[in-house]
Amino acid sequence: MKTFKYLVLSLAFLVAINAAFSQEDVLRPHGKPKKNIIDEAQESTPFPFIIGLEGGLNYNMFSQTLTWGSPVPKSIYNAYANGSGLSPFFSIIADFNLNKQIGLQLKLSYDNKKFKNDYTGIADAYTELGERADATVKREFENTGSYLGLSAQLRYNLTDQLFIIAGPLVQIPIGNFDQTETESILSPGFYYNQPGKPTIISVNSTLSNVKTRIGFELGIGYKVNITKTIFLVPQARFQIMPTKLTDDELGGIDNSRILFGTPTLTATDKTLNSFQFAVALWFQL
């Protein structure tokens, strides 16, 4: 019933728009093509001001460089080398036409980031007899946190509908970046400590030293007229963030396989970049 109401309202709206603009004019029998009317309504204001709301999904791509003091074959800590995940974001924008082709767009975003990874390797575990031996173990991690995003970007219209957009971006962390780490022993008959103890353990913590990041955003969008002054704007963007996610972690220990000792494990160059897929509603004022 709700859908039906929506359809009726939408049809009535479209009929009203059509009636308003399919008028004879002195240059063209039956009037201007509707597309031109809408374009012109946009262009008749020399410097139109647009506000917009948008929402979408991040596809996050995390990576860091892991360096062991001495080799640990099939270390379960390889799980931390990279990660990916989907997360939502929401933005409000203000867009000013500087001229017919170029505009300035300011954006304030709530930008959630989530990424995870798992790795199945070899780690020490205990048999039912209490002996320590190699077992097949899967280590997973998932990080979740949010930024307040601020950007000022230049929009360049390739056509009346298609545009590209690019500019600097600042991401300020909001709250903690939560981390959940889980290990699962996949080899049957192996336990963490002794027989009867769990084969899965999970630890929650928070990342330390999450940094305010500065980066660059580049995107492409397409304006679809809904009315003369309202546009539906699907966009695809890439956020490239040279600033590291956190500080480097130096001097950690890989103690998953005592046989290979307890070499240091250094994690450096933690980067988190994202593809963004957004749908916006722009309102020309």
Binding site: F21, V26, I37, E40, A41, E43, S44, P46, K100
Partner: peptide, 25 residues
């Protein structure tokens, strides 16, 4: 930025009458 057309020149080029939908289409 709207349609401007039919530049009808009168009085030896001193005046041009033209058609435009620059105000409200």
């Amino acid at each position: 930025s709207a349609d401007d057309f039919n530049s009808n020149i009168t009085q030896n080029g001193r005046m041009i009458y033209f058609t435009s939908d620059r105000k409200g289409g």
